[in-house]
Write a protein that binds this DNA or RNA. Structure first.
Length: 836
RNA sequence: GCCGGCGUGGUGAAAUUGGUAGACACAGCAGACUCAAAAUCUGCCGGGGGCAACUCUGUAUCGGUUCAAGUCCGAUCGCCGGUACCA
C-alpha cells in the first residue's frame, strides 16, 4: 500500500499549532453569547496502561465538532486534564514503594503525548490535574462549604467495606456484591466515615433531569437510582410493651390485609421485642444473618428465611393482633427497617407467608391469592370503609384517616442513600477538618488551604482500617484553629469522585488563586453546552457532579442549576472474540480462521463462532492506538473511529476496515498531485462539491460523522476522474476535510500556496440550487411494485407524470386487461398505479 | 422480574417527513498494468429462477394500518446495557 508521508506532516502541524497557540481561547467579549460554546470531554484517569481506543472516540468527535464550530465563527472552550488521584497508583506504591505522585505524573506525561499525537485542538494552557495542591485546594474549599451547610456528617453505621482496597464504598460503587474497582467481595463493617447528605438533594436531582438534553436511558438510570416512592408511615402499637413500631408502605390501602410484621435483623427494637421463650432462636438467626454477605442476602438467597420474635403488634385499622417476625428480606437501610406484611398483595410477603404458613387475606379483587400475590388494581374487599374503592382512592382515603387519628402520615422515600465520602487511603485530598477535644470538629480555616499531603514512608493502610496518614505523627498532631490547644487532624481522604465533581468549573479559570472560579468567566461560558463520555458514568460521576453543582448553586457561587446542558454517550468500541458452544470465550490467538465464516479452536479442533465482546487483556483483543498511529497515521485513526458507525452506538473494531479510510486519505493526497488550474470547474464537479458541503455541514452539526465521511469519499471519487485539480473546488473541499483530518488538510492547504492555517478559515457555503438536479428519476410502481423508471425534468406536474407513467411499455405489461382503480403521483418521486 | 435500547448482505453500516432497500467502505470474484508480486485503476457483488430481456423473493418472527412500511401500530422471539427482596 502506498503511503502518503503522514509521519512527516503530522508532527509538523502539531508543532505548528503548539508554537502558534492556535487553540488558546480567551473570554473575548466580541463574540455574542450565542456564539460561545463549551465542549467538554470526560477527562481520563491516567492509568499505567495508557490510552485505549475508547478514549480517542469521544475525543475525536468533540475535536471535529469544535474545529467545525470555530470555522463557523464560534468562540470554543475545549479543555483537557487529568483525574489523577486514584487507587491504582497507591496500590502500585504499596507494591513497589514508588511515590504515587511519581507514578501518576509519569502516566500523565505518557497520556499527554498520546493525546497530542492525535492532533486534538485542546487549549492546553487550561490543563488541570486533580492531584496538584493548586487544584485540590479548591476541592477542599468546596468540601468545607458542604460541611458548613450541614451536608457532611460523621457516622459509623455499617457500611460497605472492600477488604482488598481497605476502604469504604458507597452503594453505587458495589456491583453484585463486589467492589466496583477491584472486584473483591464487599463486606459489612462499622468504621467512622464522613458522609455527604446527597439525599437532601434527591428531589432537586430528580426534577432537574426534566430540563436536560440527555439520553433517555441515562435519565432513566438516574431516576431509578434516586428511586422516589410515595406512601405512608404507619404506627403500630405493640402488645404488652409501651413502644410503637413505624413502618413505611407504598400501599396503605392494603392495611386490612396485613397479617404479620417483619423487622430487619438490624432493627433497634429487635432486642426489646424478643420474648425469653424465643431468645435463643432469634440470636441464632441474627448471628447467621450477620455472617451473610450482601451477595448471599440478595442475589443468591431468594428463599425466604426468618424467625418469630414472640411479640405481637396491633393493626391500627382493625385492632387485630398480628405476629412480629424478624427476617433478612427486610433491609435496615430502606424506609424504617420494618414492614407490615400483606401477603395477599405483595410477592415477597406472599412467598414468606407460604414458607411459614402465615394467613393470607384478600383485600383487593382481581387475582387469585392462592396462586400468587395480586399487585394490580381492583376493588377493595374485607377492608371496612375502603370496600368498593379502587387503589388510588383507597390510598388517599386511608392516608387521610391515619393522619386524622394520628396513627400515621403520608411519606416519601428514596432508594438513594447518603454518599460515603471518606476513604482510608493516602492518595486523595485530605479532608480539611481538625478534631479538638474541647471544640469538637473544627474546619481548617480557608486561608490555610490547601492542606497538603505529607510524605509517608509506607502506603499500607494501618491494620485498624485507618488511613496511612494516621501514622504520621507530625502531620496528625496539630493545634485547634479555634482554641489553639493540641488537636488531631482528620486522617480520612476524599474519594476519587471529588476531583471530577467540579473540574469543568476550574477549566474556566484554572490560574485563579483568589477564588475557585471567577463569576464573570462563569457567565461567559456556563453551562457546558456539550459533554461527551462513556455511559459507565451514568449514575456515579454524573449524579455526584450534579449534586455538588446544585449545592454550589444554592450557595450562590454558581449561576446555573445544572452543569451539563447536553450529554452524549459515545458507544463502546468492542472487538471480535470467539465463543465455544457452551458460550465461554476463547482468546483471539487461540483460534484459527478456516474461512470467512468458519473458525476453530486450535487446542481442541472444535469449531467456535465469531462474536462481539468487550476488549480485554484476557481475550487478547485490545487495540493500542499508538500502533495504529504508527502504521496508518493519526488522521486515519481519527477518520476510522468516526467512520465505523454512529457515535452513540457500540461497534466492533476491525483493523481491516481502517484500510478504507486510509486509502481515502491516500487518494486525497494523490489527487493533490494533479496539475492545478484556476479554470472554472465543470458543472458536474461543482455540483458534487455543493452537495458535499451541504451534507458535511448538516452531518457535522448533528455529530453524524460517519455519513459526512461517506460523502467526502463520494466527492473524492468524482474528483479523481478529473485530470486537473480545480483550485477553487479543491480549497473548499480541504476546508470540509480539515476538522476530520486536520494534518493532511493543513499540509495540502499550504501546498496550494495559501497562508496557514486552515483552522482559521471560514467554513465553506453551498448554493441550494447547485445541490438540486434538473433531471430526477421517477419510479413507476404498479400495486406498489417497481416496474419502470423514467427521467423527468424536476417539477413535472402530476398530470404529465401520470400520462408518461401510463404510456410506459413495461407498465402496460402489468396493467393490460386490468382496471385502473387509482393513480397516485408524488412530484419528483414516483407514480403508483393501483389496478385490479 | 422491572427499566432503557437494538435486531437490515459474508462484515462495518446507509436510507432527511412513510415513497427506488443496501449509499459509503471492508472482504470476495473478474479484468487492466507488471517478467512477477505489491500498490494502483476498472467492473461485478442480498437470495432463488432464467442464455437473456426479465421475474419471484428479501430489513428477527407473526399480524395490522396504508395506494405505498426497514420506517407507523399490536404481539412474539433474540441480543445488549442498567437494576433488583427498596415494602
Amino acid at each position: 500500500m502506498s503511503k502518503y508521508p503522514f509521519t512527516e506532516i503530522e508532527p509538523k502541524w502539531q508543532k505548528y499549532w503548539e508554537d502558534n497557540n492556535s487553540f488558546r481561547v480567551e473570554e473575548d467579549p466580541s463574540f455574542p453569547p450565542e456564539k460561545r460554546m463549551y465542549v467538554l470531554d470526560m477527562f481520563p484517569y491516567p492509568s499505567g496502561a495508557g490510552l485505549h481506543v475508547g478514549h480517542p472516540e469521544g475525543y475525536t468527535a468533540t475535536d471535529i465538532y469544535c474545529r467545525y464550530l470555530r470555522m463557523n465563527g464560534y468562540n470554543v472552550l475545549h479543555p483537557m486534564g487529568f483525574d489523577s488521584f486514584g487507587l491504582p497508583a497507591e496500590n502500585y506504591a504499596i507494591k513497589t514503594g514508588t511515590h504515587p505522585k511519581a507514578t501518576t505524573e509519569k502516566n500523565i506525561e505518557h497520556f499527554t503525548k498520546q493525546i497530542k499525537s492525535l492532533g486534538f485542538s485542546y487549549d492546553w494552557s487550561r490543563e488541570i490535574k486533580t492531584h496538584t495542591p493548586e487544584y485540590y485546594r479548591w476541592t477542599q474549599w468546596i468540601f468545607l462549604q458542604l460541611y458548613k451547610k450541614g451536608l457532611a456528617y460523621e457516622s459509623s453505621a455499617p457500611i460497605n467495606w472492600c477488604p482488598s482496597c481497605l476502604t469504604g464504598l458507597a452503594n453505587e460503587e458495589v456491583n453484585d456484591g463486589t467492589c466496583d474497582r477491584c472486584g473483591a467481595q464487599v463486606e459489612k463493617k462499622n468504621i467512622r466515615q464522613w458522609i455527604l447528605k446527597i439525599t437532601e438533594y434527591a428531589d432537586k436531582l430528580l426534577e432537574g433531569l426534566d430540563e436536560l438534553d440527555w439520553p433517555e436511558s441515562i435519565k432513566a438510570m438516574q431516576r431509578n437510582w434516586i428511586g422516589r416512592s410515595t406512601g405512608a408511615d404507619v404506627k403500630f402499637k405493640i402488645e404488652h410493651l409501651d413502644k410503637e413500631l413505624t413502618v413505611y408502605t407504598t400501599r396503605p390501602d392494603t392495611l386490612f390485609g396485613a397479617t404479620y410484621m417483619v423487622l430487619s435483623p438490624e432493627h433497634p427494637l429487635v432486642d426489646a421485642l424478643t420474648t425469653d421463650e424465643h431468645k435463643s432462636a432469634v440470636e441464632d438467626y441474627l448471628r447467621a444473618a450477620s455472617l451473610k454477605s450482601d451477595l448471599e442476602r440478595t442475589d443468591l438467597a431468594k428463599e425466604k428465611t426468618g424467625v418469630f420474635s414472640g411479640s405481637y403488634a396491633i393493626n391500627p385499622v382493625n385492632e387485630q393482633k398480628i405476629p412480629i417476625w424478624i427476617a433478612d428480606y427486610v433491609l435496615i437501610s430502606y424506609g424504617t427497617g420494618a414492614i407490615m406484611a400483606v401477603p395477599g398483595h405483595d410477592e415477597r410477603d406472599w412467598e414468606f407467608a407460604k414458607v411459614f404458613n402465615l394467613p393470607i387475606i384478600e383485600v383487593l379483587q382481581g387475582g387469585n391469592i392462592d396462586e400468587a400475590a395480586f399487585t394490580g388494581d381492583g376493588l377493595h374487599v374485607n377492608s371496612g370503609p375502603l370496600d368498593g374503592l379502587g387503589k388510588q382512592e383507597a390510598i388517599d382515603k386511608i392516608t387521610a384517616w391515619l393522619e386524622g387519628q394520628e396513627l400515621g402520615e403520608a411519606a416519601v422515600n428514596y432508594k438513594l442513600r447518603d454518599w460515603i465520602f471518606s476513604r482510608q487511603r493516602y492518595w486523595g485530598e485530605p479532608i480539611p477538618l481538625v478534631h479538638c477535644p474541647d471544640c469538637g470538629i473544627v474546619p481548617v480555616p480557608e486561608d490555610q488551604l490547601p492542606l497538603t499531603l505529607p510524605e509517608v514512608e509506607s502506603y499500607e493502610p494501618s491494620g485498624t482500617g485507618e488511613s496511612p496518614l494516621a501514622r504520621i505523627e507530625e502531620w496528625v498532631n496539630t493545634s485547634c484553629p479555634v482554641c489553639g490547644k493540641a488537636a488531631k487532624r482528620e486522617t480520612n481522604t476524599m474519594p476519587q469522585w471529588a476531583g471530577s465533581c467540579w473540574y469543568y468549573l476550574r477549566y474556566l479559570d484554572p490560574m485563579n488563586e483568589g477564588e475557585f472560579v471567577n463569576e464573570a468567566v462563569q457567565d461567559y461560558w456556563m453551562p457546558v453546552d456539550l459533554y461527551v463520555g462513556g455511559s459507565e458514568h451514568a449514575v456515579l460521576h454524573l449524579l455526584y457532579a450534579r449534586f455538588w453543582h446544585k449545592v454550589l448553586f444554592d450557595l450562590g457561587v454558581v449561576k446555573t442549576s445544572e452543569p451539563f446542558e447536553r450529554l452524549i454517550n459515545q458507544g463502546l468500541i468492542t472487538s471480535f472474540a470467539y465463543q465455544r458452544p457452551n458460550k465461554s470465550l476463547v482468546p483471539v490467538d487461540e483460534v484459527e480462521e478456516k474461512s470467512e465464516t468458519e473458525f476453530i479452536e486450535i487446542a481442541t479442533g472444535e469449531s467456535v463462532i465469531q462474536t462481539i465482546a468487550k476488549m480485554s487483556k484476557s481475550l487478547k483483543n485490545v487495540i493500542n492506538p499508538d500502533d495504529i498511529i504508527a502504521e496508518f497515521g493519526a488522521d486515519s485513526m481519527r477518520l476510522y473511529e468516526m467512520f465505523m458507525g454512529p457515535l452513540r452506538v457500540s461497534k466492533p473494531w476491525q483493523t481491516k476496515g481502517l484500510t478504507g479510510v486510509h486509502r481515502f486519505l491516500d487518494r486525497v493526497w494523490r489527487a493533490a498531485e494533479k496539475p492545478i488550474t484556476s479554470e472554472t470547474a465543470p458543472e458536474s464537479l461543482e455540483k458534487v462539491l455543493h452537495k458535499t458541503i451541504k451534507k458535511v455541514t448538516h452531518d457535522t452539526a448533528e455529530l453524524e460523522f460517519n455519513t459526512a465521511i461517506s460523502q467526502m469519499m463520494i466527492f473524492i471519487n468524482e474528483q479523481f476522474k478529473s485530470e486537473k485539480l480545480y483550485k477553487s473546488v479543491w480549497e473548499r473541499f480541504l476546508l470540509l476535510l480539515a476538522p476530520y483530518a486536520p494534518h493532511i488538510a493543513e499540509e495540502l492547504w499550504e501546498k496550494l500556496g495559501n497562508e496557514p492555517s486552515v483552522t482559521k478559515r471560514d467554513w465553506p457555503v453551498y448554493d441550494e440550487a447547485m445541490t438540486i438536479e434538473n433531471l430526477v428519476t421517477v419510479v413507476i410502481q404498479v400495486n406498489g411494485k417497481l416496474r419502470d423508471k423514467i427521467e423527468l425534468a424536476r417539477g413535472t406536474d402530476k398530470a404529465e407524470m401520470e400520462k408518461l407513467a401510463l404510456a410506459s411499455e413495461k407498465v402496460k405489461a402489468h396493467t393490460s386487461g386490468k382496471n385502473i382503480i387509482k393513480v397516485i403521483a408524488v412530484p419528483d418521486k414516483l407514480v403508483n398505479i393501483v389496478v385490479k
